[in-house]
Computed example of a mutant assay.
Amino acid sequence: MIKIVGLGPGSIDDLTLKTIEILKNADKVFLRTHKHPNVNYLKEIGIKFETFDKYYDEGNDFDEVYEKIAKKIIEEKECVYGVPGHPLVAEKSVELILKYAKDKNIDVEIVPALSFIDALFNSLQIDPSNGFKLIDGLMLEEHRPDPKTSNVITQVYSRFIAGEVKIKLMEYYDDEQEVYVVRAAGVKELERIEKVKLYEIDRLDFIDYLTTLYIPPAKNKKERILMI
């Protein structure tokens, strides 16, 4: 059986006892990446693991990386795979693993965890039941934001990407649209929240792989001009 565990948003307090026990008792553990605040804690309690960071270094794009990760996990058949946050929230590699496992009749157990979405809304003290749209920042052409509701933009992992995301968002929002730039939501030592104008988001020097954008509903609607 393949067991997929969530490592939570990044606070040790959010690691579940079930996840820790599974990791401790596993013969083989893989983590999608070592770039997660809880990874050092796993080392401290004696959990041995391999990561797939080399796939990121060697891959041409994320689609290729996630495909390789999924195929490797399926080949193992008996292992534990750990991912940041909740396994079913914005985790393409898990989506692929579930698909391939179904094709090959391999059992998969999903062990839930607090997601970065839970931490984000808690840090911002916003009720998500008012509605929001979750979008991968690298897929803004395919998945367009809806200015009428809140939008959460993921994968804003560098200032360069923030600049690319900003340009795409300006097709839908006024340049002075308020945006919350949230780093490491829920992780006390690392959390940082800045409310800035849309045109300013790539000027922040703390943007990294733990950064997410929260965009409230637009007050001023911007008409998108379509080129024919």
Rank of each mutant, 00 (worst) to 15 (best):
D202M: 04
L210W: 03
T211K: 07
Y209E: 08
E194L: 00
R203Y: 01
Y199S: 05
K221T: 05
D202I: 02
V187C: 12
F206S: 09
V187H: 08
K219W: 04
A185C: 12
L190S: 00
E200R: 10
L213H: 03
L198Q: 05
D205L: 14
V196F: 06
P216C: 04
G186Q: 03
A185G: 08
P216N: 08
T211L: 11
K195S: 11
I215E: 00
D202F: 11
V196L: 13
K188A: 14
Y214F: 15
I215R: 00
L198C: 07
A218V: 01
Y214C: 01
A218D: 09
T212F: 04
K221L: 15
T212I: 15
E191R: 00
A218F: 07
L198T: 04
L198K: 04
A218T: 04
E200L: 06
E194W: 00
V187W: 05
A184M: 10
T212N: 10
L198R: 04
E189S: 15
F206P: 10
L198V: 05
D202G: 00
P217R: 00
A218C: 07
G186K: 09
E191N: 09
I201S: 13
Y199E: 09
I201Q: 02
K195M: 15
Y209N: 10
G186F: 10
D208Y: 11
L204F: 14
F206H: 08
Y209I: 13
P216T: 03
I207K: 07
D208F: 02
D202C: 05
L190R: 14
L190G: 01
A185N: 07
E194S: 14
Y209S: 13
P216K: 06
D208G: 06
K219F: 10
L213Y: 14
E191F: 05
K197D: 02
D202K: 02
L210I: 00
I201Y: 13
K195Y: 05
L198P: 12
F206M: 03
R203G: 11
T212L: 13
I215C: 03
